[in-house]
């Protein structure tokens, strides 16, 4: 039991070492940012607060989804419209999740690739349903990572195996 105790204490000390704790890792923070941004969107019908989603995006954000451009102002408008609908008790359901998130970083820039599954309907009518492959560019602002650009395309079938 002495070894067990000392091993646990060593783990404490190792995690406390600067640069070892994953909480300090930029890659982990990027992965978490992506997961939380998708999760925030999925929870939008419950939170009814567009800031819970918008906070993940930089002021100069722009994105492309299946060829359609989304600017920061368009994003804000869309989220505000959704918020109004939700506050007017218009039914809306969003099931969204991110998976296979892979992240890298260099300095204040980071990037991530990931899959998104989304099933979004309002008043029983489907708005978006399907799977998408996404790439995001992120920028570190203080201690927070924000999405500056992303590009998502609908995906069908399984990805080809890498050779």
């Amino acid at each position: 039991m002495k070894r067990l105790f000392l091993a646990c204490l060593s783990i404490w000390a190792l995690i406390a070492l600067p640069g070892v704790a994953v909480a300090e890792s930029d890659e982990a923070a990027i992965v978490r940012t992506i997961m939380e941004s998708v999760n925030a969107f999925a929870n939008f019908p419950q939170t009814k607060d567009h800031q819970t989603v918008a906070r993940f995006y930089s002021k100069d954000y722009f994105g492309i989804q299946d060829g359609a451009v989304m600017s920061r102002s368009l994003l804000d408008k869309q989220l505000a419209d959704m918020e109004k609908m939700l506050k007017d008790e218009i039914p809306m359901t969003i099931k969204a999740s991110a998976s296979n998130v892979r992240a890298e970083s260099s300095g204040v820039m980071g990037w991530a690739t990931y899959d998104v599954s989304i099933d979004w309907d309002s008043s029983g009518l489907p708005i978006v349903k399907g799977n998408e492959k996404c790439t995001s560019l992120l920028r570190k602002a203080g201690t927070q990572w924000q999405i500056q650009h992303d590009h998502c395309s609908s995906s069908k079938g399984q990805p080809e195996k890498a050779t």
Partner: peptide, 11 residues
Amino acid sequence: QNRLLEDLSEA
């Protein structure tokens, strides 16, 4: 390097 699992296995 610190053989931590080896020590945890004491339990």
